[in-house]
Design a protein around this nucleic acid. Structure first.
Length: 504
RNA sequence: GUCUUGUUAGCUCAGCUGGUAGAGCACGUCACUUUUAAUGAUGUGGCCGAUGGUUCGAAUCCAUCACAGGACACCA
């Protein structure tokens, strides 16, 4: 039952006491005329004034009471709005008769949202404050806030009740402000380059564009299942066929897979496609993009991340096969021989699925021995064709593709390639994916004949790239769980009724 | 999915080899007109995550379940 907690009951009673005294505890009119940050800036000269005050100035601020110190006939409170924290001085003799004793002291408490008018002054302890001459309750908070010193630290509560986390932890608000900036800067960067922002379907008849398990939903009117998209790729390429030459989409993808520190069932990516360009051009624009972000976010080029320090002046490029030896210390004589790779993996006690192709085994070696060592930004290039079903083959070596993935701090941040635009080749690759699917690989691509038909009309040579925004934000904010950069991360329901409701 | 560690007051946490629940903050009452997690006095507050079991007796031991954190596996 709601409101049964005794502390909540007490606060509801206070709200009623206020109503009885003619004060609306959920008042709808605020006369706020400045933010706390502006107030502190504008009045920074007060400490040099006579008596360290200026009674001719008057400001009205509003916010939530975070701390309250009642000292008899006067009180101090710490008021917080989105912009900052301000100390308010409330004295009995500067407010209407009896208001201080009967209303303020008895019915106003930590958590309430109030509005205060008054003049600026500096206290004996040297803190620029506001001397209250008007005081108005805007919103009565009936739930007690977490402890004032330790705040709220329990991760489960922080994720489930993000509003509490945001109230109590200013640095969490900061993380999400940076996230917002990253997205808006990304949008501006690509718009300034002449890219067109587009929106493509979230509900797909065929889940394509990535190797992943989709969520399934049902369209009642048509009586058919739809898949929540796992990637926007195939639709964005259709737009290139249609004649757009540079498009991007920043939006959610959905993958029906496990959840952990770097995976949430819904996540945000940007994908962009650029006609008449190659993956080499994408390497250049990616470097430029990072510089742009660092510049506008005012981040150091030597970025700390946990125990690591990442040097963003040092982007490097290494072909995948070469990286196996030079970075992964895999003997170079085995990397082009299936049997020798299998032997090597076995000697290292690493088991892999049966029937993997050479390219897939090379991918396994990379994941096992190289990926986690890539701390400074590294473009790994020239991926085997077997693990790149949508990428264009190299003109000089048909076994590899014109592709790169960007790794930073041991994690994949971006995936890019010159797009495969030969419809017959694409058809063959889909067919081989379908065969893998039939052999039990439930993450292999399905055949998308409509996409093949689109390619048949001719897609200009194009380069395309996807960047995981959540992981990028983790990197830039020094967060180590994706849940800390998602306002409302996916959580299991707490009550079993919710879990079992789908059983019938 | 596997392993592992948690779950005690609104919040942060104690509670040993089983004997019937503790602190700080918050809240109530009193004092206090320049405090900074204000201070001093005093009081209220708990189905010890859920269900079973062992026992004369369980917050404590055992089992199952739920949720969460971490690690591994899969993936972005």
């Amino acid at each position: 039952m709601a409101f049964e907690n005794k502390f909540v009951q007490l606060r509801i009673e206070k709200a009623q006491t206020l109503r009885d005294a003619g004060i609306n505890p959920y008042c709808n009119h605020s006369k706020r005329n400045t933010t706390i940050k502006k107030y502190l800036n504008v009045n920074s000269d007060i400490e040099h004034k006579e008596n360290k005050r200026d009674e001719h100035r008057n400001y009205t601020v509003a916010g939530r009471i975070k701390l309250l110190r009642v000292m008899g006939k006067a009180s101090f409170l710490q008021l917080e709005d989105e912009s900052g924290v301000l100390q308010i001085y409330v004295a009995r003799d500067h407010l209407p008769e009896d208001f201080y004793n009967d209303i303020f002291k008895k019915n106003v408490e930590v958590g309430d949202i109030i509005e205060v008018g008054g003049y600026p002054f500096v206290t004996g302890q040297g803190e620029l404050s506001l001397h209250a001459s008007e005081f108005k309750l805007l919103t009565k908070s009936i739930a007690p806030l977490p402890e004032k010193f330790h705040g709220i630290t329990d991760k489960e509560t922080r994720y489930r009740k993000r509003y509490l986390d945001l109230i109590m932890n200013a640095d969490v608000r900061k993380t999400f402000q940076i996230r917002s900036k990253v997205i808006s800067l990304t949008r501006r960067f690509f718009e300034d380059k002449g890219f067109l922002e587009v929106e493509t379907p979230m509900m797909h008849p065929i889940a394509g564009g990535a190797n992943a398990k989709p969520f399934v939903t049902h369209h009642n009117a048509l009586g058919i299942d739809r898949f929540l998209r796992i990637a926007p790729e195939l639709y964005l390429k259709r737009l290139i066929v249609g004649g757009f030459e540079a498009v991007f989409e920043i939006n959610r993808n959905f993958r029906n897979e496990g959840m952990d520190a770097t995976h949430n069932p819904e996540f945000t990516s940007i994908e962009f496609y650029w006609a008449y360009k190659t993956y080499k051009d994408l390497i250049e624009i990616t470097k430029e993009y990072f510089l742009y972000l660092f510049d506008h976010l005012d981040l150091p080029m030597h970025l700390p991340y946990g125990d690591l320090e990442i040097d963003f002046n040092k982007f490097s490029e290494v072909p995948l096969i070469e990286s196996l030896h030079t970075i992964g210390e895999v003997p170079s004589e085995i990397v082009n021989d299936k049997e020798k790779i299998l032997e090597f993996l076995k000697s290292k006690n690493i088991s892999v699925k049966n029937g993997l192709s050479l390219g897939q085994l090379q991918g396994e070696l990379f994941d096992e021995f190289v990926e986690h060592k890539l701390i400074n930004p590294t473009f790994i290039t020239e991926y085997p064709v077997e693990i790149s079903p949508l990428a264009r083959r190299s003109d000089v070596n048909p076994d590899i593709t014109e592709r790169f993935e960007l790794f930073i701090a041991g994690r994949e941040i971006a995936n890019a390639f010159s797009e495969l635009n030969d419809p017959v080749d694409q058809y063959e690759r889909f067919k081989s994916q379908v065969e893998s699917k039939e052999c039990g690989d439930d993450e292999a691509h399905a055949m998308d004949e409509d996409f093949i038909e689109a390619l048949s009309y001719g897609m200009a040579p194009t380069a395309g790239q996807g960047i995981g925004i959540d992981r990028l934000v983790m990197l830039l904010t020094n967060e180590h769980s994706i849940r800390d950069v998602l306002l409302f991360p996916a959580m299991k329901p707490v009550h079993h009724e919710e879990l079992n409701q789908e059983k019938e």
